[in-house]
Design a protein around this nucleic acid. Structure first.
Length: 727
DNA sequence: GTATGGAGCATGTTA
DNA sequence: TGCTCCATAC
């Protein structure tokens, strides 16, 4: 094996990479070379012969991160990556469950439900069981079920103090029965099922524990309880766990991530070697100073301070615009001038807290003729037409898949409507069989029965016709013969959908070439391999929903939420919409730990920038079709003023007093002679300083909505609340 | 069985 | 403002 060069690593990085086989927690600050350390560690372990490629397990959260790790590893070492246990939590669980499906109580070709599939199944279940959708919204139940699973809780283990929860648990149980009967598995189930498999089956657990001498975990701060316990199952007394994370970048608590896992790890896996990577190779001094100052406002931290050997660089620049449109205009002009100076648009990112904010920016960019790319939104395998096509493929693999059948039984329209399906479902329920079986039985009378019979015939015909075809041809054939293609051809807006269906054939082809159609591989030494192209492709579609937009040719400006920007870096970053209620988001302020998570989010945003950082806000913006007036974000008052160059009137001093500058003067209709205006700063005896953001009513009934700096947004009756003008 | 309109409603997001 | 869902009309 070739030697791995460690010369370019700093002492801490090298220490981490060359750690002996022991448990370790690497606190890796933003831009400290985290991915590099992780992959070099992996390569070093293998190259020095301390472990065989098959003896390593490395786990990440996203496919992107997993791919990145594999690519870098392959560049350092000559090895076949296919059989390596490197992947996402869900990808590895999928493999584990395919290999040991019998022990796990699943069919080998089980289908994976994405979030939309899961919700559809719940709604179907509601209908079948006559459950009141009003009192128990399907979305809430979905959240409840996934939350329970992420805590490792099966229905019987969920604590039920109140009737409401008791009912939810019943539905959870019913959902489980349904999934089991249909042989489908949701995302959380992949984790829970393989956790239980290992916990229950001592021989199997022993096998994997003996095998994986080294376990490497990326983004450890984002793990939930179940993922943590899953790792505990796989890590034996002789294995070393190398966990890399940054508590300051934990921004997914809202979906179950527990930073506490880092403390838990130090306790459960003791002794744990702790290494901090604090040298930052990304950002210039002023940017880091700003980020450090901001995050210092959080009380619950493990403690870490980033530094750089680079110079201070440029100051942060800030701009307070009167309106969201002005803010967008300012950004477009600033971007234009940077591009004129020779900076590639590709190197500039526009970040925002919520997706709704992208619209104004897009509008301004479009008018300026500036190419841009928006991340987020519909992904390839989530598009309706692609899901339809996948449903046909699922039926070919397993006609008993009720979800798939319901999705396409009437696409294209075959005269099988709601009523016919109700009858079919009653038959199926009565006989305790799948919809497919009920349809095959042919006991449905009339036209609907005939249509169903034809549908059954179609699927059976497709099965025989495609049985011997390679995957891409199979997809092609299905598209043509199912009527899907013709359906979208006759649709006047179907052009793009048709192209996506064509793209699906390409995706199948690509999948086959990249993986050889392998569903699961036992080990890197070429042990057990399960060849099942169709099932493999379907799993791939669920586990990798694909990109949201195909990459475009010319360099484009990048637009995304701050969440989506995590892990990325740009020369220049604009953080937009820095207003109280927006960033930090108002909904987060009442949540436990919410404000601190918002601050970490801001920290992530700041540390994305290498050289230039712009902060902007609008004092009034359209949100949900209404004009809102906001005070500047508290984050401005948490950044050292000397680091910021204001391109508009500074907001700093005013933030301290809780008032914005430059709010357009608009009379509040109802206040009459009171002298109060929307946008005006006021003082309230109890709530302190705030800004009037809305008003309604006349005379004695007049009420105003005030956004208080400390107390949030409140409606106050003018008659009782003694508001003093403070601006 | 399908098309249309109005009401209701809004964080963040990966697998 | 723009979407998703349900009710009603064809």
């Amino acid at each position: 094996m070739s030697a791995i060069s460690l010369d370019t690593l700093n002492p801490e990085q090298r220490a981490a990479v060359t750690l002996p086989a022991q448990n370790a927690l690497i606190l890796a600050g933003a831009g400290s070379g985290k991915t590099r350390v992780l992959t070099t560690r992996l390569a070093w372990l293998i190259a020095t012969g301390q472990v065989s490629p098959g003896g390593v397990l490395a786990v990440t959260f996203t496919n992107k991160a997993a791919k990145e790790m594999l690519t870098r590893l392959a560049a350092m070492l000559p090895l076949k990556v296919r059989g390596l246990w490197i992947g996402t939590f869900h990808g590895l669980c999928n493999r584990l469950l395919r290999l040991h499906h019998r022990d796990a109580g699943l069919p080998q070709l089980f289908q994976i439900l994405d979030m939309a599939d899961q919700l559809a199944l719940l709604k179907r279940m509601y209908k079948a069981a006559n459950i009141d959708d009003e009192r128990f919204p399907a979305r809430a139940l979905q959240h409840f079920i996934n939350g329970s699973k992420e805590q490792g809780l099966r229905p019987h283990a969920v604590a039920t103090q109140d009737d409401y929860t008791r009912r939810q648990v019943e539905f959870y149980q019913l959902y489980e029965t349904t999934c089991q009967r249909e042989g489908v598995v949701d995302f959380a189930e992949l984790l829970l099922r393989s956790f239980e498999l290992l916990a229950r089956n001592e021989a199997l657990r022993g096998h994997y524990r003996a095998r994986f001498r080294h376990l490497l975990v990326d983004e450890f701060q984002d793990t939930n309880l179940l993922q943590y316990r899953w790792l505990q199952q796989l890590a034996g007394p002789d294995s070393a766990v190398f966990a890399v994370g940054d508590d300051d970048q934990s921004i997914y608590a809202f979906r179950g991530a527990e930073v506490a896992n880092m403390q838990r790890f130090e306790r459960d896996f003791a002794p744990v070697r702790l290494i901090k990577l604090e040298q930052n190779y990304r950002s210039q001094g002023n940017i880091l100073d700003a980020a450090n100052a901001l995050i210092a406002n959080n009380a619950t931290r493990l403690g870490k301070n980033l530094w750089t050997s680079e110079g201070q660089g440029e100051p942060l620049r800030a701009f307070a615009a009167p309106t969201d449109v002005d803010e967008a205009r300012f950004i477009v002009e600033a971007v234009q001038s940077l591009v004129d100076q020779g900076l590639s648009a590709q190197e500039i990112a526009l970040l925002y807290r919520s997706n709704a904010q992208s619209r104004v920016l897009e509008h301004a960019l479009f008018n300026a003729g500036m190419p841009y790319r928006v991340y987020g939104g519909m992904r390839f395998f989530e598009r309706a037409e692609v899901k339809h096509a996948l449903a046909y493929l699922r039926l070919l693999a397993n006609p008993e898949d009720d979800n798939a059948l319901l999705r396409v039984v009437n696409v294209p329209p075959r005269g099988i409507g709601t009523r016919s399906l109700e009858v079919l479902q009653e038959h199926a329920r009565g006989a305790g069989v799948s919809l497919w079986a009920a349809a095959c039985a042919g006991r449905i009378a009339g036209r609907a029965g005939a249509s169903l019979g034809q549908f059954v015939g179609l699927i059976e015909r497709l099965q025989t016709e495609t049985a011997a075809l390679p995957l891409p041809e199979m997809v092609e054939h299905m598209l043509a013969r199912s009527g899907l293609k013709a359906h979208y051809q006759s649709d006047k807006d179907g052009q793009e959908r048709l192209e996506n269906l064509e793209e699906l054939v390409n995706a199948a082809d690509g999948f086959l070439r990249e993986t050889g159609g392998v569903l699961a591989v036992m080990d890197a030494e070429g042990g057990e391999t399960l060849l099942e192209p169709l099932a493999g492709f379907l799993a791939h579609a669920a586990l990798e929903a694909g990109d949201t937009q195909a990459a475009e040719g010319r360099p484009a400006l990048q637009l995304m939420t701050v969440h989506a920007a995590k892990g990325l870096e740009f020369d220049t970053v604009f953080i937009t919409g820095l207003e109280e209620g927006l960033f930090p988001h108002e909904n987060s302020l009442n949540e436990a730990g919410g404000p601190e998570e918002e601050r970490r989010l801001m920290y992530v945003a700041l540390t994305r920038a290498r050289r230039r950082l712009y902060l902007s806000l609008a004092q009034c913006r359209m949100l949900h079709g209404q004009t809102r007036y906001n005070v500047p974000s508290r984050f401005f008052s948490e950044l050292p003023p000397e680091l910021i160059e204001w391109l508009s009137a500074s907001v700093h001093a005013r933030v301290a007093r809780g008032t914005p500058s430059m709010v357009p003067e608009r009379r509040a209709q109802p206040s009459g002679g009171s002298g109060l205006r929307i946008g005006q700063s006021v003082r309230h005896a109890k709530f302190g300083l705030g800004v009037i953001v809305n008003a309604e009513g006349l005379g004695d009934d007049a009420r105003v909505q005030v956004n208080f700096h400390e107390g949030g947004v409140k409606w106050l009756a003018l008659e009782y609340a003694k508001l003093q003008s403070a601006g």
